[in-house]
Design a protein around this nucleic acid. Sequence first.
DNA 1: TTTGGCACTCACCTATCTTGAGTGCCAGTC
DNA 2: GACTGGCACTCAAGATAGGTGAGTGCCAAA
Lengths: 339, 339
Amino acid sequence: MLEDRRLAVLRAIVEDYVSTHEPVGSKALVERHSLGVSPATIRNDMAALEDEGYIAQPHTSAGRVPTDLGYRHFVDRLSGVKPLSTAERRAIHEFLGSAVDLDDVMIRTVRLLAQITRQVALVQYPSLTESTVRHIELISLSPTRVMMVLIANTGRVEQRVIECSGPVDEAALADLRARLLSAVAGHPSAQVDDTVADFAESCPSELRPLASAIVATLLDAMTERIDERVILGGTAHLARYGEAFPLAIQPVLEALEEQVVLLRLLGEETMSTGVTVRIGHENPVEGLESTSVITARYSRGNKTVASLGVVGPTHMDYPGTMGAVHAVAQYVSRILDEQ
Amino acid sequence: MLEDRRLAVLRAIVEDYVSTHEPVGSKALVERHSLGVSPATIRNDMAALEDEGYIAQPHTSAGRVPTDLGYRHFVDRLSGVKPLSTAERRAIHEFLGSAVDLDDVMIRTVRLLAQITRQVALVQYPSLTESTVRHIELISLSPTRVMMVLIANTGRVEQRVIECSGPVDEAALADLRARLLSAVAGHPSAQVDDTVADFAESCPSELRPLASAIVATLLDAMTERIDERVILGGTAHLARYGEAFPLAIQPVLEALEEQVVLLRLLGEETMSTGVTVRIGHENPVEGLESTSVITARYSRGNKTVASLGVVGPTHMDYPGTMGAVHAVAQYVSRILDEQ
DNA sequence: TTTGGCACTCACCTATCTTGAGTGCCAGTC
DNA sequence: GACTGGCACTCAAGATAGGTGAGTGCCAAA
């Protein structure tokens, strides 16, 4: 009973603080939420909550503000995930559905997510690992430079430029292409390694230097991981807080410019609900101590492939944002299945 | 004589203001620059410069600040382009030289530019127009979905997913691919339009619906312009001013999120020097009234292909930034020639 | 044309005061 | 034991006031 009210007070504090961005006092709490007790009682509860570390005072004689631990408790126990309205869901689906290719899906997703959450959005490219080589094209750009284009059966495309030691004629290139293609076409990329191991040796001696250069590039391109790309959008939302809040935007912007950091933010294990929330200091990244990161995994078929999410101030609307992130992840999965 | 000193005063004001970011007064000017006259004389000159609109007072009894017109005069008449040191140039060349593909060149360029100018950097993808079709690949992703990959001789790659009305078998796809390839391979993209006009009719009737869908997608992909992509970096530099200056960063960040806006910033005609400077209100974009944009074109072979540049506060180091933008554009051109 | 002198302006800093929201504690009540 | 009303206390924030000084414009003299 007593415990119950204490948690209700914590919830009320988080909700009020998120909506007003001002420390909330006992009197205001009683007025806004019908708690059925007097401010003095609330004050006692607040003191207890403060002892336990869920809330804090910016200074004596000010209201209370949730701590990271307070938000954590709120997210874990007190709030659900607010589902989106069907109208919103339909809008999302239509917006994402009209994408023409993978790049387009990613770009649209990041914009969409930023727009509906009004936060900075992150989207990681899907990992498309178990692919097989569909086609290899060798294009001579100049006498001594060759471009290799690699097409996988998933539609993923990689291109590389190869510098040759001497001039290469078209006929030799066509020959090599045919040989290479017959050697690797249809093989899962994981096996290509073995398949081409002695490819160069099997070629006529005059082609060998070029052949081995091409094989090296091929292997490099095969192991290139598209899912190490993360795009971001909605950075302008950061500036909304700018003036007033303990959210210095420069370190945040700086952190968000590092791909490595973005990957780290997205790359953590999933929680059971499907949405991961990382609050303030829980964040593994320097510069993001006063932000929270909400991520969800998306999948293709029934395999998890990558993550997407948003970054915002710790005093954000958790239920709403979690709902949005969850819904968008769901829809991206659906779109990818269709493609 | 008198005119000369007046211009010297303007130059001194711009230089001081750029370095201190504070209104500059007559006394400080005389002390910092050896102008050989008394503060009173400078005051007269300042009054004249103010009448002509080159400088302004934030309020009575404050020093002077350059106006947009003042900066314009400074850039046009008073400052040169500061060349980079050879060490810097070599560093640039090495950094850009180790890029593996076009995407990589672009990403490295935008980072480099942001880093050396300490401003927000923009880089437009090069337009690779007069290309010919090198290869077309059709990949069946599912019974009713086909992915088309288009490779041009420049190495540009486009991919599209095509939804088919009915199931498509591999043999038909291979047949179509061969027909299509022989119809368009080697033709300049500008002529593909005509070449494939009656392609669908020339196919066996059972393939026609698919053939025409593919042709439509092909034409769409051919006309897709890669040079409508602009990437940006270094947004964190915006926050450096944040607090103190009449540079509200939110509208700037918002503007910079719109591809259309970025294109407009980069898309204007070149000036003879090769570096274009657009100061404050000269900018064609809402939200960027208190920023200056410095751009330069880069080329491949001897054809101009696209632009790159930086966006910063009007009180920026023009000679240095112009030098950096110029040098980077030069080196990107060189790298592209090599590729 | 330049200069020194002088009165004037006004943003900015500092000090002091007032206000009020909010707290903690305690004694009394249910 | 839980709740409440009362009360003294704290302290950020806002308002007011005075002082300071960098900077200006103007003018008469060199």
